[in-house]
Design a protein around this nucleic acid. Sequence first.
DNA 1: AAGGCTTTCAACCGCACGAGG
DNA 2: ACCTCGTGCGGTTGAAAGCCT
Length: 324
Amino acid sequence: MDVKGKVLNNSSSMIQSEEDEDMDLRRGPWTVDEDLALINYIANHGEGRWNSLAHSAGLKRTGKSCRLRWLNYLRPDVRRGNITLEEQLLILELHARWGNRWSKIAQYLPGRTDNEIKNYWRTRVQKHAKQLKCDVNSKQFKDAMRYLWMPRLMERIQAAAATATTTTTGSSTLSVTPNVITTNNTTYNNNNFEVHSGGNMMLSPTIINNNFCCPQIKQSYTPENSSTGTSSDSFGTHVSPVSDLTHDYYSVPVGSNNSNPNLEYYQQAHQVNYLDCITSSSGLFSPDMDFQTLEPNTQWIQNGDISNNLWSFENMLQQLNDNM
DNA sequence: AAGGCTTTCAACCGCACGAGG
DNA sequence: ACCTCGTGCGGTTGAAAGCCT
């Protein structure tokens, strides 16, 4: 990340406690030097005891600030960049279960911080609640998420996976780090997901194909009609063309989307997630996403028994727990 | 090109909780 | 029982970037 803006000191207009003034504590964006100091200190001494750590490392920061900087940004296993479709799906599901328990939700998204998930929710999800003119906690919005948004995400994951599989059949070889999905001769097992040794969880196409959603959804929101960019594409349904996906896949460098000063440090720690690569260009909801235009098409929600075939997230979570 | 508005996200804040003295 | 300290969590803020007119 670019260290942007000015670093505040005790001469700033921000309110500071007496203690802060005494300690001449810094606030605001971290500088490269501060980052390096923190990284080096933790590399040598480990983390914890943040107040004394801050002092020992020569950082004029609070222990809290050091902890936050480390956990949310400098930690080697922090993943940065767009929230993938799979992650979006997980966030929606887990938030439906636990509400604003960001840290708990973050535990199921390896490398993502509670702060990032919280930001995602506030900037993306709550925005759509506003568009719907309903509360984010209302039944209307929850229904929209569960029966429209989430199946749509599943569909987009399916489309992306299919595209990627097609790509792999060519002469090019996908080379991904060993502990994430690796495929050239793609063979997916029947498990709904896999937890890899590196902690990456990903949906397999199995559930996408077999336990996806009710027929009505497929009929209403097929990739064919949703990717045309017509007015029916009102649910963030843009599916990137193959060329985009291919470009994204082959152009994503390890450690991209961050500008950590200690690049080598990152490059050793970060790994490229296969599905991240193939979905990164469309990993965010499109700006024109509009629930309202879909709202009337909810009869199937009441009529159809979709509880069994919507998707097997219960199973996914159970298996995840079993594997942890 | 410039100014205003919106979005994003790093960072801060206050509070709660548990451990230890 | 009380206090202090360290830590973790969720809510909020504000600067920078992006977008729009």
